[in-house]
Nucleic acid binder design. Structure first.
Lengths: 146, 146
DNA sequence: TATCATTAGTCAGATACTCTGACTAAAATA
DNA sequence: TATTTTAGTCAGAGTATCTGACTAATGATA
């Protein structure tokens, strides 16, 4: 069990990540929510329950705030998110999930759950749990926002 | 050890992937090889020892062949790769690593090794091996080109 | 409290990436 | 040989991303 013929760990992480993302996109398209792009999804995914500031979304998605602003503009036009004033800071506004986003998110969540179920079927429940645990530990040293 | 507070598995995979990619970019910039973009790296990474066809690069990187062609154009102009005729098929050409690429690749490889060492220091050798093994098994059902 | 520095976000412009559609030439197949 | 498929390019358009410059509100401090 040496696994020395495997590609580098980066690619190894990327392959299932991309697979999962593609399954979510497929599910959204099928359900009529295809008017969202991967770049936009990577923003939406990081919006917290009570809304999140643009700058924080930018930091977490690792894009500039200008880019995040552009993506939120698109999402807002399409009804996925809305901007509301931040009561604690007049400069800031909170980006929140709006109507269309609330409808679509369960579909995305279901798609993720289905993929995770498929992975459990292939790897076994124990190994998936261990994988998630290990990735969670890795997050401690790779996620500045953990 | 339930890990129920962890984000979805997609984000969990993406975070360390992106971290690793950033460390590679940092190393390349430091060594004076900053004239490559992430999109270009995702192509270069998939070029085999004897060269790889454009269409295959496109498939594996999950972009259209036009996009792959555009990226290879940039890489070729910068001396990272070259195109040589495929002796077995006059329509095709093989994309191969050229001089600049050959110089830079060891730097990228070193950066990857350093990150993997840091991960081993944090998780333990055993858990990293297990992580790679599990990701390798996952690849069986998520990589059409495995 | 008046000033200075920082932070949140936008505007403008440029570049990079990605796609669809249409095309040529070579190879594979019927 | 005629047809279909495959490898790749050309052209055009939309999306994503960046840097630089700016405004307004906040925070820190003299």
């Amino acid at each position: 069990m040496v696994d020395d013929d495997l590609p580098n760990t980066g690619l190894l992480l990327y392959i299932p990540y991309r697979w999962l993302e593609n399954r979510v996109i497929d599910a959204l398209i099928t359900a009529g929510y295809g008017d969202i792009t991967t770049a936009q999804m990577r923003i939406v995914q990081r919006i917290g329950l009570h809304g999140t500031r643009l700058t924080e979304l930018a930091d977490q998605a690792q894009v500039t705030k200008q880019t995040a602003g552009y993506l939120v503009d698109q999402l807002e036009k399409a009804g996925w998110v809305e901007r509301v004033v931040d009561p604690t800071d007049k400069r800031a506004r909170l980006v929140r999930i709006a109507a269309r986003g609330k409808q679509a998110l369960p579909i995305a969540a279901t798609a993720v759950a289905e993929v995770e179920a498929a992975w459990e079927a292939h790897l076994g429940k124990r190994h998936v749990a261990q994988l998630r645990h290990t990735l969670g530990r890795l997050r401690e040293i790779t996620d500045p926002y953990a």
